[in-house]
């Protein structure tokens, strides 16, 4: 009976993941490996960026008059924020579908999301990356790693650590069923600062991590070290988010750009 319960939990979490996220690894890999009828538009310099802004991005975030006068770095930063905000809303819906999450104290739900959403976001972003670039605008665009790296300080430093993480993470060859459980494990984490009902969350975390372990054994029978490797990725993601949060604080202080209110809430008093 316990095994049946674990399989049901894995299935529920996988279904919630497929239902709530617009992009997933399977879709992203289809596009990145050229198996779609229309390939993504490649953004590799200022000219192609402008072309993309007139078509793909205009559809995505609308064209704001205030943004038109800003430099390319600030406009790209704005697009990154829009993607983050959309992903946070998707992650919130996903979290609510994880059995037990909605029964938690509401303050604890807020805390788990505050600390978990960026770790989950960067884990899922890896699905949209290869060594040369990143899928953007719902898979309709592909922005090159070199172009992102060439942006002026501090914006040029923003994505490179995510690419470095993604290349190692992608070598684990997880599929969407594995990622769904991994993302749930990131969110249901009992050691976030300020949690009220730690034992309740630890019980949830334990059952999700157990299911993840079991699922990896059956889905990747030839890779016995996958589970400990993934636990290490949880540590790496925390470090990645800490550095990202510091960079955001620097941008806020030194650049003439605004931070979305939802992201302000999340970054305020974070680390």
């Amino acid at each position: 009976p316990q095994l049946a319960d674990q399989k049901t939990l894995a299935k529920q979490i996988h279904e919630a993941y497929l239902k709530n996220f617009n992009m997933n690894k399977s879709k992203a890999r289809t596009i990145l490996t050229g198996k779609t009828s229309t390939p993504p538009f490649v953004i590799h310099d200022m000219e192609t960026l402008q072309l993309a802004e007139q078509t793909l991005v205009a559809k995505m975030v609308g064209s704001s008059a205030a943004l038109l006068n800003k430099d390319a770095e600030v406009r790209i930063f704005h697009c990154c924020q829009c993607t983050s905000v959309e992903t946070v809303t998707e992650l919130t819906e996903f979290a609510k579908s994880v059995p037990g999450f909605s029964n938690l104290d509401l303050n604890d739900q807020v805390t788990l999301l505050k600390y978990g959403v960026h770790e989950a976001f960067f884990a899922m972003l890896a699905s949209c990356m290869n060594k040369d670039g990143l899928l953007v605008a719902y898979g309709n665009g592909f922005i090159t790693r070199e172009f992102l790296k060439s942006l002026r300080r501090p914006f040029g430093e923003m994505m490179e650590p995510k690419f470095q993480f993604a290349m190692k993470f992608n070598s684990l060859e997880l599929d969407d069923s594995d990622l769904a459980l991994f993302v749930a494990a990131i969110i249901c984490c009992g050691d976030r600062p300020g949690l009220v009902n730690v034992p309740h969350i630890e019980r949830m975390q334990e059952s999700i991590v157990n299911v993840l372990h079991l699922h990896l054994k059956s889905n990747h029978p030839d890779n016995g070290f996958l589970f400990p490797k993934l636990l290490q990725k949880l540590v790496d993601l925390r470090q990645l988010v800490t550095e990202h949060a510091q960079l955001i604080q620097e941008i806020k202080k030194t650049e003439d750009t605004s931070l979305h209110p939802l992201l302000q809430e999340i970054y305020r008093d974070m680390y």
Binding site: V85, K96, V110
Partner: peptide
């Protein structure tokens, strides 16, 4: 905590209210 995270709180309580980009 809920007071300092009004948008997250709203998203948790009401899934049908979108966040402006």
């Amino acid at each position: 905590l809920k007071e300092k995270h009004k948008i997250l709180h709203r998203l948790l309580q009401n899934s049908s209210s979108p966040v402006d980009l």
